[in-house]
Amino acid sequence: MPLTQLSRGQSARLESCTLPEFESAELRAMGLKPECEFRVCKMGEPCIVSIGPGASGCRIALSKKLADHVHVRPC
């Protein structure tokens, strides 16, 4: 399911990105790599996720246009 269908506070794993090559490469380098686990901090515009195991990691804010193309699996 697309990232935009999750709700606030939910955790999920990333499955794939259906974005142009350079954009998905950028997100992947920022930490949104396949199978990474993240927590949704905010939905809407922008969509904010906190990536990373436990207390470490980083926060990435995505505009909705990008988040629509990020496919995830809730966990």
């Binding site: 515009e45 904010i48 906190s50 207390a55």
Partner: peptide, 25 residues
């Protein structure tokens, strides 16, 4: 190399709240 088992803390929740406020429409 990393032992990291701390759960999501108060600080993260505060950051969440601030983020939501600052990017709210």
């Amino acid at each position: 190399v990393c032992a990291d088992d701390a759960p999501v803390g108060d600080r993260d929740r505060l950051t969440d709240r601030l983020d939501r406020a600052f990017t709210h429409p």
